[in-house]
Design a binder for these strands. Structure first.
Lengths: 261, 261
DNA sequence: CGTCAGCTTGACCGCGCTCAAGGCCAGTGG
DNA sequence: CCACTGGCCTTGAGCGCGGTCAAGCTGACG
């Protein structure tokens, strides 16, 4: 039951019961992958979209000297390997951080489905855009904030995204990341991640023990990170009835007929 | 004559003379914009695509405290405001750095054109992907490298992109950025940008005077930045004749008929 | 009970920030 | 023609954030 994935897609475009059933069928075959395995390898051409149903993965770039930079997290309900459907530049790998239950959907199957279920493709597409927005946000976060702010920002992003799929409640979530993972994500040494977390704990902004993250006052954490979650909310592609006359993004072209139907 | 724009699009998809003429007509009406004006404002909904034909602009995020983070450069031939065509999350502004000659293309006009000139839309689309790839690269650069590496990386990116539109020769280009601009782009104070540039100069890696950047040994600069320009080369969407049997990214769907025709 | 991964803490040091002052044009107006 | 002005670049001094190295701690697991 890939319900995290369905829930995620449903945020972008209202899915009919038939749409949902179709996604369910597409992502029916799942398999568990061990931690620290690659789901997608830099340079390798992939013909499948990989949907993470449980567990966490990350997109990363690896250097020859052993260091790596995590450039994004892949959480339950997230997909990677979109190059199988849309043309894309793929110059990074995606690896599991925990054990991951994943479904591999052949690009062809997804494309065939897209023809008959435009809303699915549209949702999938909008999800890609969200990833781009997150990437921009990371750039800003890295350039502007100090360790405290960066980590706070990342935690805000994570909580917000997990809430969207129902994996975080009002005051916390499971955070299956090591401090090393966090460091590789925000560009800070493991030691300093530790000290920064201590600092956030001492300020009463978070509690984090044994992979359980508690955020007693989300507004306070948001303030530290200058976090504005608007970029994580789904873009609304206006439907015809509330679209100003004469302005029809994407409509009027074949592309439009797919994406904003 | 928006030939930088045409040249740029032509890298992604072979444009017919008719395609080129069409783009020329679309971007015929141009106007000069002063430095430090906004072409696109965070939050404002734009119905036009803005193509920069001469001069430089940048995408940036502004903070309340006055600091800003540049998240990407817009150089001659580059477009911004794609939200007028594709749905997109726009949580940043685009402002001019120099005087800029820009063409504003109504989204509707571009969409209408897309219907009859699929290669134009496809090129435009692939250009968007390149921007995403650059964004990922910035994330990695920020997280992994120190000031020297970041600036070297940025300079490599700039030279490579300018070469693609014929605005950089073998050993240099015009670089109309202040050290403050550079600092806001790589997340480093103006003072330290200055010192880092001195350092690069002293190492013989660059010469930079009065907006003239000279890179005597590009390979050496690339090595400092660990720069691999592959991500800036256009993705090739395979044409039918060299596509492996049975694998047809994007073909078979209406979307495919637009993007990979 | 030993082992191993991950977390924690301390000491030291350097990259990069801040504040502050001065230098170098290019443009402007007397 | 020269003085003045305002961007922008340059340089110095001092300091703090965050990196590195090294050691010890904790808990899960065989």
């Amino acid at each position: 039951m890939p319900h995290h994935f369905i829930r995620k897609l449903g945020r972008y475009a209202p899915l009919s019961p038939d749409d949902e059933e179709t996604v369910r069928r597409l992502a029916h075959e799942t398999a568990w992958v061990d931690p620290n395995r690659d789901l997608l390898i830099d340079g390798a051409e992939s013909r499948e979209v990989c949907v993470v149903l449980d567990g966490w993965a990350c997109a990363y770039k690896q250097l020859e000297d052993g260091r790596r930079q995590i450039i994004g997290f892949v959480m339950p309900g997230d997909a990677c390997g979109a190059a199988a459907v849309f043309p894309d530049v793929v110059n990074y790998s995606v690896g599991t951080l925990t054990a991951v239950r994943a479904a591999r959907i052949p690009g062809r199957a997804l494309l065939a489905t897209a023809e008959t279920h435009p809303r699915i493709l549209r949702a999938f597409w909008l999800d890609r855009l969200a990833v781009s927005a997150i990437q921009r946000e990371w750039t800003a976060s890295f350039g502007l904030y100090t360790a405290r702010g960066r980590i706070a920002h990342l935690l805000c992003e994570i909580v917000t995204r997990l809430r969207a799929v129902g994996l975080a409640d009002e005051d916390g979530c499971l955070l299956p990341l090591t401090q090393e993972d966090l460091g590789e994500a925000v560009g800070i040494s493991t030691v300093h991640v530790n000290r920064t977390l201590q600092d956030l704990r001492a300020s009463g902004l978070i509690a984090l023990k044994r992979q359980q993250l508690v955020v007693p006052d989300f507004a306070a954490l948001r303030a530290v990170a200058q976090f504005d979650g608007a970029y994580l909310r789904p873009v609304r592609v206006r439907d015809d009835h509330d679209r100003p006359a004469g302005i029809e993004p994407l409509t009027g072209s074949v592309l439009g007929s797919v994406l904003s139907s």
